[in-house]
């Protein structure tokens, strides 16, 4: 009786989960879809290029030249677009008609002008940005220095008096060590095999010394798992991984914790 009741309850839970998943999907879709049209917004740019040359020399390119609407210009617009875009792919195509040549020339001029205007503006902007960046970098530097000081203070508290050499290269060295620890982990793991599936809950800690030349020496079994085969598999992995690459800071002692 209990069995059949429990079966009756289960589908309702499933339905709830399904409905919630569908609702979530709809919500996510609603959020993500409207962002796409923004990227297609390249129309105003093509209009800029066609603007009357002499009128907008000073760099006020942003004003849309909507007033001039002769058929020629409209044609030009379309032709320029066609002529210029392939130019990127084919460097010097010989235009057959004179019209096209003129149009191409005009387009080049336009580009030069817009470039000039842009560079002027950009220069101004760049200057501003450089100032900003300088300010930011100053801030970050001070923050970093503060962090370094904190680390130094912590080190002094935990280890005692630190050597001057250690302090100066602290950041670089710790990165090296983290990288080296990764190498140790990968190499020993690569050799770790166990003949029994049923090993959950076991833990073995083995203390080893890694010599300057990378040779591993087992110092002691710091914590035995109580399972002879498991301890053996850990020691075997270490002995097969021997030798390791030389450690970055000379001889070191580490604990290797084996957990399934």
């Amino acid at each position: 009786m209990k069995y059949s009741r429990s079966i009756g309850k289960e589908p309702s839970l499933l339905r709830i989960v399904l409905v919630s998943v569908i609702l979530h999907l709809i919500f996510v879709a609603m959020v993500t879809i409207p962002t796409k049209p923004k990227t297609r917004d390249y129309r105003p740019f093509s209009v800029k290029l066609v603007g009357p040359i002499e009128k907008y020399e000073t760099g006020t390119i942003i004003q849309p030249p909507v007033e001039i609407k002769s058929k020629e210009i409209v044609k030009k617009v379309t032709i320029i677009e066609k002529a210029t875009t392939p130019k990127v792919v084919k460097p010097i195509p010989q235009p057959k008609a004179d019209m096209e040549v003129e149009i191409a020339k005009e387009a080049e001029r336009l580009r030069a002008i817009t470039k000039l205007a842009k560079t002027l503006e950009q220069e101004k902007n760049v200057a501003k940005e450089i100032e900003r960046l300088r300010a930011i970098s100053k801030l970050t530097k001070t923050l970093e220095q503060e962090k370094k000081r904190e680390i130094q203070i912590r080190k002094e508290r935990t280890i005692g008096t630190p050597k001057s050499a250690e302090v100066t290269g602290a950041a670089g060295e710790s990165e090296d060590i983290v990288f080296y620890e990764d190498i140790i982990r990968q190499k020993i793991w690569g050799y770790w095999v166990h003949p029994n599936h049923n090993i959950s809950g076991l833990e073995t800690i083995i203390s080893v010394i890694i010599r300057k030349n990378g040779e591993i020496k087992v110092r002691e079994v710091e914590k035995s798992s109580g399972d002879l085969l498991f301890d053996r598999s850990a020691i075997k992995a270490i002995s097969k991984a021997n030798p390791l690459p030389p450690p970055p800071d000379g001889e070191m002692e580490i604990g290797l914790r084996f957990i399934p």
Binding site: I177, W189, W192, E253
Partner: peptide, 12 residues
Amino acid sequence: KVYIDITAPAFR
């Protein structure tokens, strides 16, 4: 002292 965890042995 640094302790490195090594997990998930292969079965052999």
